[in-house]
Nucleic acid binder design. Structure first.
Lengths: 225, 225
DNA sequence: AGTAAAATATGATAATTGTCATACAAATTC
DNA sequence: GAATTTGTATGACAATTATCATATTTTACT
């Protein structure tokens, strides 16, 4: 059983408010596991008995729409927590979480988290801030979906993927998503997404090589937004 | 200075966790005021020094998009709080709040709320739940905007307006919104919204008399969603 | 009450986006 | 390694939605 003290999640999430004692208790009751790319951590409608710490990897939070398409609401990466909303609301999840890369994840039982809420005020405050951050992002997302064109949303998403997840030595986006996933992020049909990527490519804003996408003219993409 | 003890906001919001002592303190430092329909409570980018309790009336939370259109993110009504996100995040607001009806509002200074966070755990938990509820709604809103047609979103919005705000004796929706505001809720051009309302009218799902909208065939509207 | 301003309504048209079909490439399976 | 499945790409077309123009109605103002 590894320690929680030096874990990256502790560094970046609400957990940074926990003291040594609390971290030891957490290390004691947590379970670690690996999630392979494509595997599901939880599904829409599941009731969660705790929250997940993402030690490594990235997953998508998405919701299946009636038309059969998966709308991606958020990407969650290393250092972040997963499942807080459901735990705090005491409701089953409204989103599913599926790994986009291989992941290392720890599960902390609900009881433990609730106790932290009770005894550690800073932890509660941190958690609130984190949820508020998500809320702000979601509100912004709504405005984008409602008021911007698919082209603008694609440009914005590509820039955001670079900003959030970085790029490789060759300049290509580190996080590789399928066309379907990108379409799910910007809220459009997969074909439309593919078409626009081709268009961006022809215009010279980006370069495509298989799943690899390289931004070659950031300024033009920014200008579109 | 009126008491907070029997206030409707206390009944329905996170404030229900406050004890007599805390309520008295709150009554002492709060300021009450009236907001006329159309008036602004706060604007996008304002820094708030507290939160607002809505004793009566309804306001819209909206964000101005680059294309000049106002996207309505949420309607906030009597009994609810306003400005928590900004206060908790310690950021300026990302949304503006404008009265849709005449309102009675109380302002509670930031210091007071922070103290409640520190001394009353249930209050913190309630606040978290409330923000989490908003987050869930926003996530659902994103999926709707991304995956449903304008027609479906209009139908859904009309039903939601009836469910949330009720109807008058004549059956018309109690909350009267301008066409532009309805368009801002469903994320479409005002003309498109007007056109679809006319269409719904012709089909017999709704009746229009000026600003008054009456749902006359709820089942058909539900079937569309 | 009379006038100006704003909101609602509708037509015509263009632009955007989705759907269906099909082709090709890449990955996976046996 | 051949075969099947899955993902990517593109064309053709239809449907949806936005934009611009212009009436008409309602509301606000003095």
């Amino acid at each position: 059983m590894s320690k929680c003290e030096q874990c990256i999640v502790r560094e970046f999430s609400a957990l940074k408010a926990l003291n040594k004692d609390e971290l030891l208790r957490m290390a004691d009751c947590k379970t670690s596991f690996v999630v392979k790319k494509g595997e599901t951590i939880f599904d829409e409608g599941d009731s969660l008995n705790g929250i997940y710490c993402i030690k490594d990897g990235v997953c998508k939070l998405s919701k299946l729409s009636d038309n059969g398409k998966d709308q991606i609401v958020k990407l969650v990466k290393k250092g972040e927590l997963l499942g807080q909303r459901s735990l705090i609301s005491e409701e089953s999840t409204n989103l599913s979480a599926v790994a986009i890369e291989d992941m290392h994840v720890c599960f902390i039982p609900k009881q433990e988290i609730l106790q932290f809420f009770n005894e550690n005020n800073q932890f509660s405050l941190n958690m609130m801030k984190s949820v508020c951050g998500d809320l702000k992002d979601a509100d912004d997302g709504m405005v984008n979906l409602a008021q911007k064109t698919v082209k603008q949303r694609l440009a914005e998403t590509l820039l955001k993927l670079e900003a959030d997840f970085g790029s490789n030595e060759d300049g290509s986006l580190k996080l590789q998503l399928s066309r379907e996933e990108i379409a799910g992020m910007i809220g459009t049909a997969t074909e439309s997404c593919i078409r626009l990527l081709s268009e961006f490519n022809k215009e010279g804003w980006i370069t495509l090589q298989g799943k690899k996408i390289t931004i070659t003219n950031k300024k033009e993409l920014q200008r579109m937004i």
